[in-house]
Amino acid sequence: MTIEDIRRILEAEVVAGEYLLGQKVATVCGSDLMSDVLAFARPKAVLLTGMTNSQVVRTAEMADLAGICFVRDKRPGQETVELAESKDIPLLTTPLSMFESCGRLWKEGFVGGSEYED
């Protein structure tokens, strides 16, 4: 699975890092709390979030995430886009809600990063 698969399934638009669409995605994490992402997301996870400030990109950088998809058509500011490009982190935005995005990706076979997963 790649960022391109996420883009397709969530009907998302690429906001930054067009050249990174082939990047591999291992798991999905949906959260608006960055500490939660730092605690639970696995390396190479894609983050679904409603937050668009630059700390979301910092979080992705620290936790070695594969990319970020903003939900509900949220668009990040220039600063966030620039930081993402400098760190090679692709950004997408989907019109879908967090709930719907998680549901569709789950149906398509994506897995979460939980240690409690069966």
């Binding site: 709390l33 960055m34 500490s35 605690a39």
Partner: peptide, 15 residues
């Protein structure tokens, strides 16, 4: 509202 301050920071560091 910025996505921090949910009382996880120190737990995360400890982890």
């Amino acid at each position: 509202e910025l996505g921090f301050g949910a009382g996880m920071g120190l737990c995360n560091i400890k982890k």
